[in-house]
Design a protein around this nucleic acid. Structure first.
Lengths: 211, 211, 211, 211
DNA sequence: AATGAATGAGGGTTCATTCAT
DNA sequence: TATGAATGAACCCTCATTCAT
């Protein structure tokens, strides 16, 4: 996949780049086979390095997963739309669209599934903390949009958990060689979610208590 | 969890029951830690059996996963609503609601995540075939509902993949000891999905090509 | 060396015996090559078992070393002579003699050298505690013999550390196929130590402050 | 510990000095953790050098150990007292005293424990040869002292092996921050050994055949 | 003279699987 | 039916060693 040695800059920069390639390839493997189903040999082979060399860049297999999660949560946070000139509903739409796009982009760090026993206690805490920051950012937008009557009155926590399912799940079925371009997917998923949330539409199946 | 020896019927019936307990417990572990992250020792311990004994009930670890998938897809198919006296849209709603409910029920067989390398080629094919049958059944309902103008014109395959994300994902965040009863969750998720699909509502973010 | 399967008793007894063989062989290897210089493959080969099987009997390599130390300290304590009808000096002599004999006996558990980093903190504490119990037992005898004026006035702690050197070191140079029978060695070493400690002899090099 | 670059002479002298620091630090590590328990990283870190650089000063890890042994045996030989104006017994006393002192001095090369498999066959031979030279030197003194009736009739080889145990063992329990100054230790140990060997004293436990 | 980067070999450990009982 | 004992294969990780710079 991503080739090694084809960089020519100096020292630290090069090292950072290499580490980055490592994280992206590792994330891809973790996504496909899960943490326990991925061997370091596999990852090393993908980037044309010996397994032992990985330990020059990373302390642990665990640590490698942790770094992926960290990079992924940074990426996620950066898709949160903060343009206050837009309505909250509009911001939600853009956020979801961008988030889907970044998750599907080649070389994403996103791992999605967190198998228990794959991280240390403190690492797990940090990962969850970061994930919650992302959730909270979205939650805030949703709450604001409810206030603004763009989104129907509902339990915003439940709403976020539910629609992020549709969003996260995309990484499970997306095929780069499939019929649908990433942009079409991201806009369509975001629009679907927003329609499901929106205020005012006739409710075909009324009586649901949470959303 | 589920106790062993507390059955008293004879012969095959008893054996089938025991196998069933095994599958359910195994599925729970696979769901939590992934296939590769689950050891047979773990499963054996949960049902109070020695690891070696598992091989009396199952050919393989792989086989065990396979059986879970089979049982799960049977379960899934049985949530498909076929009451032809109802509109397709209504049937979709009921199907989703029941499917969510069955996935969250204690002792579900659902594993959700399919790690590559966990099944043999032929097993994988069979699992995918069965899963596709479920998807196709839903697809058919969606197509019918589009025809009936209850669901907006869209790519039905894309629609199914997308909203099943929201549906499947529930198993990832549901906590039996949480605030929300299963019934509230299942109706709310199903309603959310249907609103997102429905024809006629004002489209807040028009221009999405797939859904 | 010690053969496996040639026992015929039942259940627990047989298992205890096997574990015992394991400890003795392990101790022999640790003695010869040090903890870090000994591989489990080596030990497994010596008793005709696969490396993986060792883990059926022992939790760890560390644990294996720990068990050796425990067994060795039990053995050491059992050479302490407690016959109160004898003078302390006489008891010291017998203790040393028996201790040397047990260390040199084929199949001894004694490891002697404690490499840092070979045990966990708590294991190390326990080993040191046990070793100190043995030292203290000897210390008490020495103190009593000083009191009785059989041993010259001296720092008893220093005395014990010093003469136990001569005693422990024997395991480093003893060769089972050498000229000297174990009994000759043990009596000679013990006698040498006691002469060095004894009260009343002319001091050829007076002025030493500790012993 | 010992700092690098703080020497300012030129060329070979400087290199020799650096090598010397290396040997002393290496010996300290080998003594504490054994050969196999000591990593080159550790040694390199102690003298503030990168692991790769060690290979500029030494051919091998093995070689490093070998050099320590060589330096140590030189040191040992230099403690042998050859002042022919003194009695053999007196020379023995002085030799032991000086030897203990040099072993305990900060920056000693002494490794003491020889793990099998740590040296090449030829290196091992050489180390043993040198060690035997030291033993033989002491042996000669002992024999002479027996002749002179200062030491009781005994097997001199056995005597040397035995009392060198007490002497070598000191390195195992000596703590630089302990209560006993090196000089007190060395005189006391030497005196203890000589008393144990001396002719004429009443033998409290007669009948030992070797010593 | 020094080091960053890379690696092969080997060691500890886990685990699915088998088999005799 | 059930299990204790045993094992090969695979995996994570460390480390001595090399080499280009």
């Amino acid at each position: 996949m991503a080739r090694w040695k084809n960089a020519n800059m100096d020292g630290d920069a090069i090292r950072a780049l290499k580490r980055d390639v490592l994280y992206r390839e590792a994330a891809a493997s973790f996504r496909k086979n899960g943490y326990h189903g991925t061997s370091l040999d596999e990852i090393a082979a993908k980037i044309g390095l010996s397994k032992a060399t990985l330990y020059y860049y990373v302390k642990n297999k665990r640590d490698l997963l942790y770094r992926c999660h960290m990079a992924a949560s940074d990426e996620a946070m950066s898709s949160v739309c903060v343009d206050q000139s837009l309505t909250a509903f509009e911001r939600l739409y853009r956020t979801l669209k961008d988030y889907v796009r970044s998750c599907l982009a080649e070389g994403s760090y996103t791992v999605i599934i967190l198998e228990e026993k794959s991280l240390s206690k403190s690492q797990l805490q940090e990962v969850i903390k970061r994930r919650d920051q992302f959730y909270d950012a979205i939650l805030a937008i949703v709450a604001e949009a409810i206030e603004a009557k763009d989104i129907r009155p509902c339990n915003p926590k439940f709403a976020v958990l539910t629609f992020l399912g549709a969003v996260n799940w995309v990484t499970k079925w997306y095929r780069p060689d499939g019929d649908w371009p990433i942009d079409d997917i991201s806009t369509s998923v975001a629009a679907f979610v927003c329609r499901g949330l929106q205020q005012g539409a006739v409710d075909p199946f009324p009586g649901s208590s949470l959303l």
